[in-house]
Computed example of a mutant assay.
Amino acid sequence: MIECLVLPGVPGLWARALDECGGPRGCGGAAEEFLRSVCRDPSLCGSTGGRAGGAGRYAWVEKIIERGVPDGRSRLILYVISRYLVNVKGLPPEEAEAVVDSFLDASCRNHGNCRKVYKSWVRNVLRHVARGGWRPWSLERLQREDPQLYQVVESVIKG
Rank of each mutant, 00 (worst) to 15 (best):
58 Y>A: 02
50 G>I: 01
129 V>Q: 03
158 K>C: 12
83 R>Q: 03
41 D>L: 09
10 V>W: 05
149 L>N: 04
51 R>F: 12
104 L>A: 03
58 Y>C: 00
27 C>I: 00
135 R>K: 15
101 D>P: 09
137 W>H: 11
57 R>A: 06
73 R>L: 06
63 K>H: 06
63 K>C: 06
71 D>E: 15
157 I>E: 03
131 R>T: 12
154 E>Y: 13
113 N>C: 09
90 G>Q: 02
111 H>R: 11
51 R>G: 11
38 V>M: 01
13 L>P: 01
52 A>P: 11
124 N>L: 15
23 G>P: 05
100 V>R: 04
18 L>R: 08
121 W>H: 12
7 L>V: 10
60 W>T: 02
159 G>A: 04
153 V>Q: 05
38 V>L: 04
49 G>A: 04
119 K>A: 12
24 P>L: 14
56 G>L: 15
61 V>R: 02
93 P>M: 06
102 S>F: 07
15 A>E: 14
114 C>M: 03
103 F>P: 00
21 C>P: 03
116 K>Y: 12
26 G>K: 07
10 V>Y: 01
61 V>M: 07
9 G>E: 02
151 Q>M: 07
55 A>Y: 04
84 Y>K: 07
93 P>C: 09
126 L>K: 01
119 K>D: 13
155 S>V: 08
108 C>D: 03
35 L>S: 08
159 G>L: 04
59 A>V: 02
40 R>C: 13
3 E>H: 11
63 K>D: 10
8 P>V: 03
67 R>C: 11
96 A>G: 06
11 P>F: 11
34 F>T: 00
134 W>N: 14
157 I>D: 02
73 R>M: 08
77 I>T: 05
135 R>P: 14
102 S>N: 06
10 V>G: 01
85 L>P: 00
14 W>R: 15
63 K>Y: 08
75 R>L: 08
15 A>K: 13
7 L>G: 02
116 K>C: 13
112 G>R: 09
72 G>A: 00
146 D>A: 11
27 C>Y: 01
81 I>F: 04
21 C>W: 10
115 R>C: 13
73 R>K: 14
64 I>V: 05
95 E>Q: 05
17 A>G: 13
155 S>W: 08
60 W>D: 05
39 C>P: 11
74 S>K: 15
126 L>M: 00
44 L>Q: 15
25 R>A: 13
103 F>G: 01
33 E>N: 04
21 C>Q: 11
94 E>L: 05
114 C>I: 12
22 G>T: 13
149 L>T: 10
22 G>D: 09
117 V>P: 08
25 R>I: 10
124 N>Y: 14
124 N>F: 14
114 C>Y: 05
137 W>A: 07
83 R>T: 09
5 L>F: 11
58 Y>S: 00
18 L>K: 08
126 L>Q: 03
100 V>M: 07
47 S>G: 03
149 L>C: 02
62 E>Y: 07
8 P>Q: 01
139 L>C: 10
21 C>K: 10
14 W>Q: 12
21 C>V: 08
154 E>V: 06
158 K>V: 15
71 D>K: 14
157 I>R: 00
87 N>R: 00
104 L>V: 04
11 P>W: 09
77 I>C: 05
36 R>M: 12
46 G>D: 01
152 V>G: 01
110 N>M: 10
154 E>D: 13
142 L>N: 10
9 G>C: 00
18 L>N: 01
78 L>K: 10
8 P>H: 00
88 V>R: 09
40 R>G: 13
43 S>M: 12
2 I>D: 14
130 A>G: 15
60 W>V: 01
